[in-house]
């Protein structure tokens, strides 16, 4: 078997193991929650018989390993069970919410790619110190120092008090009125984009500066290649893999549900689904949405890493040792 193929197979195996671990953690962590589902649904006044009947009905009286097995088997075939609170299949709800979270994520990601990456490259090419000048350090620091739960409400405040035009609180379906949906999501996406752009610019700058000092750049300068040519052919090409990896991580984070932004702006996406589910101990809902977030993270990262071996063969040989 060729080295690269073997490396890819190993990578996929590792991915499976990670997901198995993640599913175990989420399942058993939820079972540790105090209270239990029956008392949440039936309230504190329910009789012992009512509790038992409810537990039996939902299979909650079975041993935990059996419950886990049933859930995992269903999840593998796309059946995530039924929300214990709303009695709606979790999959239906996820399908309704994914386009919203997806649009939100795409908008923030676009900002990271279109603003963050060029900004990072430009500052990386010009810097003479690793952390840049005082002003640059201050601005870069500010970008990652303003949390979403501060920026979100601040934006809401300014908009609700001073201006209107960006709809707040009214959403449209992606399939019916995509423009309306995008317009409604401009503000929350802007809040998400703020930190995404800052992180992307910081990391890109770091990567570019790392490439700039490599010997092959010195060789290119010595050969008399023009700066722009060096940047395009040597610097950018060698910076691509780490930047793509970072963007993958950001995408996974955004798709997994931007919990705080979705809560602040009252957006019916994956993140707010997860949070309301957790508050009500709605096992099926939390399990499915957290597993979805973890799966996206693991799969996107693995896919990018595998793609990277084709762009840059050093990636897989490093893993092989």
């Amino acid at each position: 078997m060729s080295g690269v193929l073997r490396w890819i197979l190993t990578r996929l195996l590792v991915m499976g193991v990670t997901l198995l671990g993640a599913s175990l953690v989420i399942f058993f962590a939820l079972r540790l929650l105090p209270g239990g589902y029956e008392s949440v649904v039936l309230g504190p006044l329910a009789s012992e018989e009512q509790r038992q009947a409810a537990a039996e009905r939902w299979g909650l009286d079975q041993p935990l390993w059996v419950q886990y097995w049933e859930w995992a088997r269903g999840a593998l075939t796309g059946d995530f069970g039924i929300s214990l609170i709303s009695q709606v299949p979790v999959l239906d709800e996820l399908q309704l919410r994914m386009p919203v979270t997806g649009t939100l994520a795409l908008m923030a990601l676009a900002a990271a790619v279109l603003v963050g990456v060029p900004l990072g490259i430009l500052t990386g090419l010009r810097s003479t110190r690793r952390s840049g000048g005082a002003a640059g350090r201050l601005v870069a620091g500010l970008g990652i120092s303003i949390p979403e739960f501060v920026l979100g409400p601040a934006v809401l405040y300014v908009v609700s008090v001073r201006m209107s035009g960006f709809g707040v609180g009214s959403l449209s379906r992606l399939t019916e009125d995509p423009v309306g949906l995008v317009r409604a999501l401009v503000l929350p996406a802007g809040v998400l984009a703020f930190s995404c752009v800052a992180v992307t610019a910081r990391t890109t700058r770091d990567v570019v500066m790392g490439v700039l000092v490599e010997p092959h750049i010195t060789a290119a300068v010595a050969r008399g290649e023009r700066p722009w040519h060096i940047v395009r052919h040597h610097v950018l090409r060698n910076s691509a893999v780490p930047i793509l990896t970072l963007l993958g991580t950001i995408t996974a984070y955004l798709l997994g549900g931007a919990v705080i932004v979705e809560t602040v702006f009252n957006i019916p996406g994956i993140g707010s689904y997860m949070i309301t589910g957790l508050g009500r101990q709605d096992y099926a809902v939390v399990q499915a949405s957290v597993l979805l977030a973890a799966t996206l993270f693991v799969v996107i990262n693995a896919a990018l890493e595998i793609a990277a071996t084709f762009v840059d063969p050093r990636v897989s040989s490093k893993g092989r040792r």
Partner: peptide
């Protein structure tokens, strides 16, 4: 690998 499992969850979740 154990570290990977915890790394796969979104931090706030």
């Amino acid at each position: 690998r154990v570290v990977d499992v915890f790394y796969a969850f979104p931090a706030i979740v």
